[in-house]
Design a protein around this nucleic acid. Structure first.
Lengths: 281, 281
DNA sequence: ATATTAATGTAATTAAATTACAAAAACGAA
DNA sequence: TTCGTTTTTGTAATTTAATTACATTAATAT
């Protein structure tokens, strides 16, 4: 998947001159993209076929294929590389970095999504008697957002950012109720407690959280968002966004699972809100 | 920057056969990456030089350059032009479409951002006596989220999703207070009213909303997110996310503008929350 | 020290992209 | 319409790039 990493990993498998090529590649991957075998050969002080052999060894079909993979890699990873915010960044730079790191976090999440878990989540939600959304801190607004979305449908959807209210709701849950818990790390103690209460009451507990985390233990389904740690510096940003988009996807899947009637319902809600807006010009 | 979009935009400038090439490209951009001029020419039923002419017209150096740009674009995920959800899509497809359209909405927002307006917003916030975040419906959770973020700093930050509470807060605002209003369309009547109240009280009103909208009239600064309409089908999704990322960027800029002390403050908050979490293993 | 294997380069070949130019189509003005 | 002009398109030639075949050199083990 990650071609630059692959080159680094296989450095030891390479012959002397192939190694020279690798060095040249790692020196400035960006540059390789716009270069021909001939020029790269000259730069690395090897013959042209060696370039080709290098590409094959790395696992590519040939030099053009290698360039392509590199280009894709860099396009994706460009944001990762430079997403740390420095004290002397100006506003434009910071804005750009935030957007870029969010973009790459989302792209990463999309790539590593567990579709089976999502499918399972949707089928549980579809048959739910009642859906509760729980979370603390930054995850509270994710939970709030989720509740907002599900409010458009007919299944009762609740949310509170109050610990006690959440606890009571978990205590009063029954089989057939679904509890969705949000926590990026899965290590928030209060939330684990709540999840356990729901779990013990045989409600269905769904965790939008890290796999293998303490919270995950009390979940029937875990959907994780795989956002690299370093994207969230002082406060959760990218991870929160990833969770919200995940919920968007789940809501869309949920809506679709309901079939035709729900579309009319949604259209009705939209129409009903019309009067509270100025008409578009 | 966005090559697929460029192709779409310049569709009308193309000649008949160049148009055929464009169609072929838009049909399956992924496929083009691994194809030669000869094959693409055959697929589009044109001659090889036409492929080259097409690339030049679009603004590329040639076919290999076009392929490279396309590859990079696709890697970023910002390509999915038409992500309308169909009734017969399965869960994986829907999930993918939601992520893709969110990614492209974000990429689009990033590209069209008004950095001057953001800078102005940050400088107002920096000197604010009190910051209020207002919004209804889906924008309420964005406002909530914003309040959450700013709660980590020392400037008082308020939020409520209650109309009356918001109205009272606007009525009680003073010069030096900042009111941030969220509305994708800028046409929510209740919010316009609130913005006007604040405006009349000489509070600073910042609109995260559409330029030229009714809401924009009562804003001292407008930051718009330029998310294409069609990305939000039945409910606001991508636009909401774009607003949140925008807030992330503003928060980051805000934090940076405060200098060293705020970093310590943030670190302190983080440390203070430690006990409410299980330690990472 | 020599046989054997692996690594590398040279030269040839194949493939891909681009250019030059001519034919055809589209367009405008009389 | 009809003729001249411009634009579009394709054919063939050329250039550039990538790959292969094979010979040579270097490295390694017996």
């Amino acid at each position: 998947m990650n071609i630059v990493q692959t080159v680094k990993d296989r450095l030891s498998d390479l012959s002397k001159n192939e190694y020279k090529v690798a060095q040249q590649v790692l020196l400035d991957p960006e540059a390789i993209i716009h270069v021909s075998t001939a020029t790269l050969a000259k730069q690395a002080n090897v013959s042209e076929p060696t370039i080709n052999r290098f590409c094959r060894r790395i696992g590519c079909k040939g030099f053009p294929d290698f360039k392509l993979q590199l280009a894709q890699q860099l396009a994706k990873g460009a944001s990762y590389v430079n997403s740390q915010i420095d004290d002397d960044d100006n506003v434009s730079t910071v804005t750009d970095k935030i957007f870029s790191s969010t973009l790459s976090a989302l792209a990463n999440t999309q790539r590593t999504l567990d579709h089976a878990a999502i499918e399972k989540t949707i089928s549980y939600l579809k048959d739910a008697r009642k859906i509760s959304f729980f979370g603390f801190g930054a995850s509270a607004s994710v939970a709030h957002d989720a509740q907002n979305k599900f409010a458009r449908f007919t299944t009762p959807a609740i949310f509170s950012d109050d610990v006690l209210v959440q606890k009571v709701a978990a205590l009063n849950s029954l089989p057939g109720d679904v509890i969705v818990c949000f926590s990026h790390t899965g290590r928030t103690k209060a939330l684990c407690e709540i999840a356990q209460l729901g779990y013990d009451n045989q409600a269905t507990v769904i965790g939008i959280t890290a796999k293998g985390s303490p919270l995950a233990k009390y979940c029937h389904v875990v959907v994780s968002t795989e956002v690299p740690e370093d994207t969230d510096q002082y406060m959760p940003m990218a991870s929160r966004i990833a969770q919200m988009v995940l919920i968007d996807a789940i809501v869309a899947g949920f809506a679709l699972a309901q079939g035709e009637e729900i579309k009319q319902q949604l259209a009705r809600v939209k129409a009903g809100l019309k009067d509270s807006r100025f008409p578009p010009q």
